[in-house]
Design a protein around this nucleic acid. Sequence first.
DNA 1: CCAACGATAAACACCA
DNA 2: CTGGTGTTTATCGTTG
Length: 647
Amino acid sequence: MMVESASETIRTTPSNQNGVSSLSSQSDGGGGREGGSNGDTNGEISPVDLLHLQQQQALQAARQFLLQQASGLNSPGSNEVKQSPVQVPVSMAMMSPQMITPQQMQQILSPPQLQALLQQQQALMLQQVRPPSFLTTLSSAFLSCGLQQLGSKQLAFQQQLIQMQQLQQQHILNLQRQGLVPLQPTAAMQTLQQAMCPSDLQQLWKDVSGVPSSEEALKQAEGLDLSTNSSNSTSAFPKAASAHLPLHSLPNGQSHTPKRDSHEEHTGSHPLYGHGECKWPGCEALCEDMGQFIKHLNNEHALDDRSTAQCRVQMQVVQQLEIQLAKESERLQAMMTHLHMRPSEPKPFNQPVSTHPKPTQRVFPTPHFGCHPITPLRQGPSVISSSSLHTHSHSHTHAVGPIRRRNSDKYCTPIASELAQNCEFYKNADVRPPFTYASLIRHAILESPDRQLTLNEIYNWFTRKFAYFRRNTATWKNAVRHNLSLHKCFVRVENVKGAVWTVDEVEYQKRRPPKMTGSPTLVKNMISGLGFGSLNASYQAALAESSLSLLNSPPLVTPQSAPSLNMLHVGHDDVSSTVEQVNSNGSCSPTLSPQQYSHPVHVKEEPTEVVEEDSRPVSLLAGVTHSLPLPSDERDLEEDLPTEELE
DNA sequence: CCAACGATAAACACCA
DNA sequence: CTGGTGTTTATCGTTG
C-alpha cells in the first residue's frame, strides 16, 4: 500500500534529457488507426437509407445466418471485418462491406441522432402515404389518421423486429435440438436475456422514453423480455378466433385501412398482440379482441416521442441480439469444426499469419473458441478481442510490437485459459501472443514447479511456448528484463545458485486497478461488441451481478478445474489464473510457497505484503475472497460483484 | 487533453 | 573486454 509511486513520479518529469529520438524507424506503421472509424460517416447517408439499411439488415442478418448455417457452415473468410471497430461476427461481416451494421450505426449515430432519424423516417413515411399537399391541409382529424397509419407502419417495423427475434430464437432452439449447441438449452437464451437484463433495459427505456415511473420501466423491461421470449407463442398461436377485424373501429372513424396492417390483421395474428395483451414493449395492456387491440395501439402507441424512442430501443435490442446470435454462430462453427475435424492442425492459421505480425498487429488464432485453433474457415477475426485487428500496419518494421492492448488483458481475455487452449497454436504460429509481458512472465514463473525461474529460464519459457519469441529475440528479452525490474510484482530472490525471479501476486493484483468496474460502456461493449467467447468469463462475472445462477450453469469457458464456486470465476484474467489452480491444486498458494521466499534479497519495494500472502491462498479455497487482494481473476469478479459471497 | 499503462529502446552499472 | 543480468529513463501508442 505504500509504494507504487515510483514509476509515476518518474513519468511526470517530461525532461527530454537525451533527445534519444532514435525511434524514428517506427515508420508510423501503426498509424492505421481505426479508432476513429466510428466518426465520420455521418452526413453521407440519408437518414432514410440508414433506417432502411438497418431494417434490412436485421432481416438479412437472420437470413444470412440461416443460409450460412444451412450451407455447411462455410463462411467466407473476410477481412473486411476490421472496418468495424467492434469485431463484427462473420454473419454480420458478410454484409458489412456495403451495409452499415446496426452496430456501426449505433456507433455512428448518437441516440439523439437516431431518434431524429426515426422521426424523420416516420415523417417521410407519412408523406409517402399521403400526398404532401394533403399534409399541408391536415386537419387534426386527418392528422390523427396519419398518425394511425404511422402507427401501423411502426407496427410493421416492430413486426420485423420481432420476426427477427423469432428467427433467432428458433434457430437457437433448432441447434439445441440437434444437439449442436452444447450449452444448456437455456444457456444461450439465458445469456441473451442476461445480456439485456431487466435493469439494463429498464435504464434504457428510461433513458430513451422518459418513462415516468420505475415501475413502468420495469414493466417495459419485462415487456421486452416478453417480446423476446414469448414472441413465438404470440405468433405461433395466433388466436385466430379473435381475428376478426376491426379496422373499422379505428378511433378516428377512418375506414382507411393500411395495407399491411389489414393483411396482418386479417390473418388473425398481430405480432404485437397475443394472449389478449398488447405486446408493445412495456405495455401489456389487456385487449379483449383484435379490434380493441388495434384501437389501443393507435391510441397508446401512436407516433410520438415515446413510441419513437421505444422503437429505437427495440432496434437496439434486436441489434444486440443479432450480434449475440452472430457470435454464437461463430462459436458454433468453431465447435463443429472442432468436432468434425481432427484438432491438431494449427497450420491453417500459421499461413496467414506467418509473415510476421507487425507491431501492434495482433493476429489471434481463434483462441476464444475454447477449442483448438482450427477453424479453417478463417482465422478468426470474428470473435477476437476488439483490439486484435486494429491498426493493421502492414509496413515492415520491427517485428516486435506491443504484445497486446490493454483491453484484452484487463477484462477480456482469459489469458490462462486461452493460453492453455491454444498453447499449441502459439507454439507453432509466429503470432504475437496477446498478453502483456508481465502476465507472460508471471505465467511462466507460476507455471514452474517452484514458481521461480531464472532469467534464462524465463527466456526459455518464452521461446518454448511461443514461436514468435523464437524469432524476435533481442527486443523481447530486453522487455522481459525491463518488466522484471520495473514491476514490483516480480521479486528477485537470491538463490544458492544465483538469482531467481518470483511473483508477488499481491503486487501483481495491485497494479491493475480499473478493469471492468461495471462501467456502462464496458458493459455495453461486452454485450454488443467484444468477442462473446472471450468474454464469457468476465461477462458472466458481470452478469452475476444480477444473477449468480448463470455462473454455475453454462461452463462456456471451460472452467479449468474449478473446484469451488470461487474458482469458477477464475480464469478470465491472466495466464496465471490457470496456473494457480493447476499448480497449487492442493495448497493453492499461487504465489509463494514458503521456500521461494527464502530471502528476497532484492525486493523491489517492500516485501511487507508478503506476510499476508500466506493467508490469502487459504482464503481462496475457503471462499473468503475478500479481505485481501485477490488474484486477478477473483478480483475481476470482485469488482463486478460488490459483495457476492456467492450465496 | 490527461493519466495510466504497456511496449520499446537505450544507457548504464555490476559481475563473472 | 565481453556478455549476461539488472536498473533506470525516455518516448510512443493505446485506452478510458
